[in-house]
Design a protein around this nucleic acid. Sequence first.
DNA 1: GTAGTTGCAAAGTGTTTGCAGGCAG
DNA 2: CTGCCTGCAAACACTTTGCAACTAC
Lengths: 155, 155
Amino acid sequence: METINPNHTTESLNNLLLAHDIKPTSQRLEVARLLFTHHKHFAAEEIFSMVNYRTNSSQNSTSRHNVRQNSVSKATVYNTLGLFARKGLVREVIADPNKVFYDPNTRPHYHMYDPSSGELTDISADSVQISGLPAAPSGREVEGVDIVVRLRPLK
Amino acid sequence: METINPNHTTESLNNLLLAHDIKPTSQRLEVARLLFTHHKHFAAEEIFSMVNYRTNSSQNSTSRHNVRQNSVSKATVYNTLGLFARKGLVREVIADPNKVFYDPNTRPHYHMYDPSSGELTDISADSVQISGLPAAPSGREVEGVDIVVRLRPLK
DNA sequence: GTAGTTGCAAAGTGTTTGCAGGCAG
DNA sequence: CTGCCTGCAAACACTTTGCAACTAC
């Protein structure tokens, strides 16, 4: 289900952050790497534990840019994710009342969610047509339209 | 914004609960009354405080069915709302990561949410057309499709 | 130096649970 | 009597905050 995209070098992640007006610190790069090398939606707690209890397999031996920090504090993970979301690098997905998912895909698309497995998958916006949604009331504008197809196990 | 529908007598609420296989206790009737006499979406905490810090204006003098309890505990409010949702009396709306809204309208419809005001309003399903959503993966079925039009204040 | 960043622990918020007592059939 | 219902307080999960130490330009 989860695929790895190895096309993100530390260099390109660096540029990605800079392009979004985010100063690339080693912690932020750690979090960004997780988000952008896995095609998957993560909750903050998952990111926190992945960053801390896992040694990244690639470029662990001869990385010359930074001393690899094996830990990013919880506060920093949350702050970083909030920052990424504010800067438009990732998108928050509200599908489960218990946690926010962070989605590295910021282009319009929708989601399918299975609460029983916690699995959240993308639905491409290309095939989906919606019409007839009302306009925003005065003084406000539409920020986005979220669609969540909610699944349950077959009886 | 909020309208009162006085058409729910204690009697009809009683039948409503019974029809949904819920034993009508005085606490459950309190919660049901709140949900069904206001055309509004409530969060659990709101219901908790409304039930406890407000005297219901109607039928306070000569109600002969139950001694009016001026308080419903927090646990009971949450248990009751969970029960109502499980039994299909109300619907949970996941629009805000901080709280679950309970919607007395269980027929298909969508929502518009303004996080800055906390206001959640209905969008009738009649006018909205969606097509192209993928089928559920094997072993699962679609429980429902949630659409949330997310608003923000105009700049 | 100065401003932004980090980590820790503590606090906070919404929600759930364990359990003893209560009430209804 | 028996089983469900209730209320309290404690526990919980996720997230935010205050603050002192740190780092980079």
